[in-house]
Design a protein around this nucleic acid. Structure first.
Length: 257
DNA sequence: AAAGCAGACAACCGCCGCAGT
DNA sequence: CACTGCGGCGGTTGTCTGCTT
């Protein structure tokens, strides 16, 4: 019954990391690189669960982390991405260099939720508070910030009055199919012989969100694609300038200019 | 000055999907 | 094709810190 624990709990430390543990972890990863988290603690001489090491590295020790306050621009980006993606923190983090999913999740729960509420917006649905979720298609355009994105999702088709997974997939647009996958806005100059990146890699580096039934090799996650019956593919460009934000070094090369 | 409270953030837990066998 | 292990993700909890009374 149930799966075996990821590690030997009896001999692992829990709680806050000490400086020495951090140093060991950093030194080990610098020497050997990331990967094989399960065996890493032993190899690095840490009495920690591999998952714990991974989390510590990703959320705190990675050298490319910003670890500074979120800017207004990042705030708006997060809000916009959340409106599209829901609680897909890793996807959102993939679009915010130097930010981690955990950081964004925490920031969302502590700051942005309140910010949206103070604006009179439901942080879950990104609709004005007090508007019923069904048939709220028209109401969804009340908020200025959402106009651009919502207008990008052309239809407010009523047939998918989704009642599935309301937490992670906001039902903006009155039932638009948020069957999400990511397409690459710009192909890397094929540096690697590997035919396709992993889904996470693609998601982390991508700039486009594909709504509907992707016909590319990038497919949706099974969980999310389960409800999809759409045969039409709609791509929403998430390049920063398309989101109405400037200062991003990313250039939209989606071709849909 | 002390106690209580709320906010912020780090870390843990359990589940899921993918890849390998 | 089924099974298993691992990595990753999202939700939740625990703890620390600053603020208010």
């Amino acid at each position: 019954m149930g799966r075996s624990p990821c590690c030997e709990k009896a001999h692992t430390n829990k709680g806050a990391w000490t400086k020495e543990e951090d140093q060991r972890l950093v030194a080990y990863i610098k020497a050997h690189g990331e990967g094989c988290w399960r065996s890493l603690p032993k190899a690095a001489g840490l009495l920690r669960c591999g998952k714990s090491c991974r989390l510590r590295w990703i959320n705190y020790l990675r050298p490319d982390l910003k670890r500074s306050n979120f800017t207004e621009e990042e705030d708006e980006l997060i809000i916009r991405f959340h409106g599209l993606l829901g609680n897909k923190w890793s996807l959102i983090a993939g679009r915010l260099p130097g930010r981690t999913d955990n950081e964004i999740k925490n920031y969302w729960n502590t700051h942005i939720k309140r910010k949206l509420l103070s604006r009179g917006i439901d942080p879950k649905t990104h609709r004005p508070l007090g508007v019923s979720t069904s048939g709220a298609c028209a109401a969804s355009s009340h908020h200025q910030d959402q106009d651009q994105l919502l207008s990008a999702r052309s239809s407010c088709s009523p047939e998918t009055s989704g009642d599935d997974d309301s937490a992670s997939a906001p039902h903006d647009g009155g039932g638009i199919d948020l069957n999400l996958s990511i397409s690459l806005p710009r192909q890397p100059p094929s540096p690697s012989p590997s035919p396709l990146p992993t889904r996470q890699e693609a998601e982390a580096t991508s700039g486009g969100v594909v709504l509907g039934d992707a016909n590319s090799s990038e497919t949706t996650t099974p969980k999310e694609s389960g409800t999809s019956s759409s045969s039409e593919r709609k791509t929403i460009c998430l390049c920063l300038n398309r989101l109405g934000l400037q200062g991003a070094d990313e250039r939209c090369t989606c071709g849909d200019t």
